[in-house]
Simulated scan of single mutants.
Amino acid sequence: MPDTSGPDGAAPLDTPPTRREAARARRAQSAADAGPTFQTQIRAARSEFESQVAHARAEFEEANARLKQRTGRDIVLAIVIGLAAGVLVLASLLFLKWIFLLFALAAASLGVFEFTRALQAAGRRVDLIPQLIAGALLLVSGYFAELWLHWVATLAAVAFVVVWRLLGQMFARDGRTYGAVLSDVIISGFVQLYVPFLASLALVLLSQDGGEWWVLAFLIVTVVADTGAYASGLAFGRGGRHPMAPRISPKKTWEGFAGATVVALAAGVLLALYMLGLPWWAGLIFGAVILGTATAGDLGESMIKRDLGIKDMSSWLPGHGGVLDRLDSILPSATAALALFYLLSPLAVR
């Protein structure tokens, strides 16, 4: 081997690098040079992505704010809550329909609670506990009892809350006028007929053979009619708005009703053909009747709230108001759906 030591046996002299070592050094230098450039590109891309997200979020919040200003409600939150409730209802009807009884009990009880509290705040004497007890028994009888026995239960529920109110007034001895007492008694009976009784008719329908499909059908028509009215009112109700009932509900327009009519009739036909096994013309009848009762129920509750001087029955459902504000169009539609079941179900293809 050649001698690589320095003069006089000093430390070895540096040798020139081999080709492999030189190539490795060049690659290391290239990676070192490219490192900052690659990291800079990553940072720039991330910054651009964050900027795009922030811009999209700002535009979304701005659009949501404009909708909230026009409608007075948080539309996005309302949609989320509506979808969650829809999933629960759909699951209960498709898998174990008796679970829908629990859902109806909870919704109707909350509706009675809201209505009673609103009446009490307006100076009416309505007893909450008897209303809740009678309402729950009325709903249970709608699902389990025969139809004639359910009518007996309805009369018993109304009589129970009326007698309770009269006895409560007797023990109060507060000098309340005869007219005010009579008004309290009538309103107490009305609470039972308006919320638990109408809700119980949906359970009467549910208890029928295949009744879960009819319940689901009338709920779908009610929801799509409400959605269609809202979307059509926003799209075509600007500028030349034509209010349906300005003294009752100024925001409801004929433009919105036209949109609700189109989607309700279309939904009725599709449900009749593919869910209920009815002729297409029966679907038109189904959609038109449910649309009429849903609209009447919506306007009716608006009239009640206007008389009480409130906008919503409560604020339990953000973007919707109260539970009763969501049941206003469903409750009277349950009566129509039950009647349509008896009239149209013989036409169903078996």
Results as ranks from 00 to 15, higher is better:
Met1Thr: 10
Thr4Val: 09
Asp14Ile: 07
Pro16Val: 13
Arg19Glu: 11
Arg24Ala: 11
Asp33Pro: 03
Thr37Pro: 00
Thr40Tyr: 13
Ala45Leu: 12
Glu48Asn: 12
Ser51Ala: 13
Gln52Ile: 11
Val53Asn: 06
Ala54Asp: 10
His55Ala: 15
Arg57Ser: 09
Ala58Asp: 06
Phe60Ala: 14
Glu61Ile: 04
Ala63Arg: 14
Ala65Ser: 11
Arg66Asn: 02
Gln69Arg: 15
Thr71Asp: 07
Thr71Leu: 13
Leu77Tyr: 09
Ile81Pro: 01
Leu88Asp: 03
Ser92His: 06
Leu94Asp: 04
Phe95Ile: 10
Trp98Tyr: 12
Trp98Ala: 07
Phe100Ile: 00
Phe100Asn: 01
Phe100Cys: 01
Leu101His: 08
Leu105Ser: 06
Leu105Pro: 02
Ala106Ser: 06
Ala107Val: 08
Ala107Gln: 02
Ala108Val: 05
Phe113His: 08
Leu119Thr: 06
Ala121Gln: 14
Ala121His: 15
Ala122Trp: 11
Ala122Gln: 10
Ala122Asp: 07
Asp127Gly: 06
Ile133Tyr: 10
Gly135Ala: 10
Val140Leu: 13
Ser141Leu: 09
Ala145Phe: 13
Trp151Leu: 09
Val158Arg: 00
Trp164Val: 06
Leu166Thr: 06
Gln169Ala: 14
Gly175Thr: 03
Arg176Phe: 04
Arg176Pro: 03
Arg176Gly: 09
Ser183Gly: 07
Ser183Arg: 10
Val185Asp: 03
Ile187Leu: 14
Ala199Tyr: 01
Leu203Gln: 03
Leu205Glu: 01
Leu206Glu: 00
Ser207Cys: 10
Gln208Arg: 15
Trp214Pro: 00
Leu216Cys: 02
Leu216Gln: 00
Ala225Val: 09
Thr227Leu: 14
Gly228Asp: 04
Tyr230Lys: 04
Gly233Val: 09
Ala235Gly: 05
Phe236Gln: 09
Gly239Phe: 14
Met244Arg: 00
Ala245Met: 12
Pro246Leu: 12
Arg247Glu: 07
Arg247Val: 05
Pro250Ala: 15
Lys251Ile: 05
Lys251Cys: 02
Lys252Leu: 08
Phe257Thr: 09
Ala260Cys: 08
Ala272Asp: 00
Ala288Leu: 08
Ile290Ala: 04
Ala294Ser: 14
Asp298Met: 08
Leu308Pro: 02
Trp316Tyr: 10
Pro318Tyr: 03
Gly319Gln: 08
Gly322Phe: 02
Asp325Ile: 10
Asp328Cys: 05
Ile330Thr: 11
Pro332Cys: 04
Thr335Phe: 15
Ala337His: 02
Tyr342Ser: 06
Tyr342Val: 11
Ser345Cys: 01
Leu347Lys: 08
